[in-house]
């Protein structure tokens, strides 16, 4: 059985073209950590769009 490192290198080499095209769509948009973003977003949705959220979440 191949080691984890060997398997990683082989797979990376064989998927080189694929990974390059996909990697361009992986760029994070914000420097703020993901969990902070979700918390801030949740608070904003509650304060700015409470009525809209209540309607959607009650269906």
């Amino acid at each position: 059985m191949e080691s984890y490192e060997t398997e990683k290198k082989v797979s990376t080499f064989s998927n080189e073209k694929l990974k390059k095209s996909d990697a361009t769509h992986n760029k994070p948009l914000s420097d703020i950590p993901f969990d902070i973003l979700t918390k801030q977003g949740a608070e904003e949705l509650c304060t700015k769009y409470k009525d809209v959220m209540k309607e959607i979440l009650s269906k």
Partner: peptide, 11 residues
């Protein structure tokens, strides 16, 4: 739905 919306709200 709400969780995905939090990211939409921020970004």
């Amino acid at each position: 739905v709400f969780y995905l919306s939090t990211i939409m709200q921020k970004l």
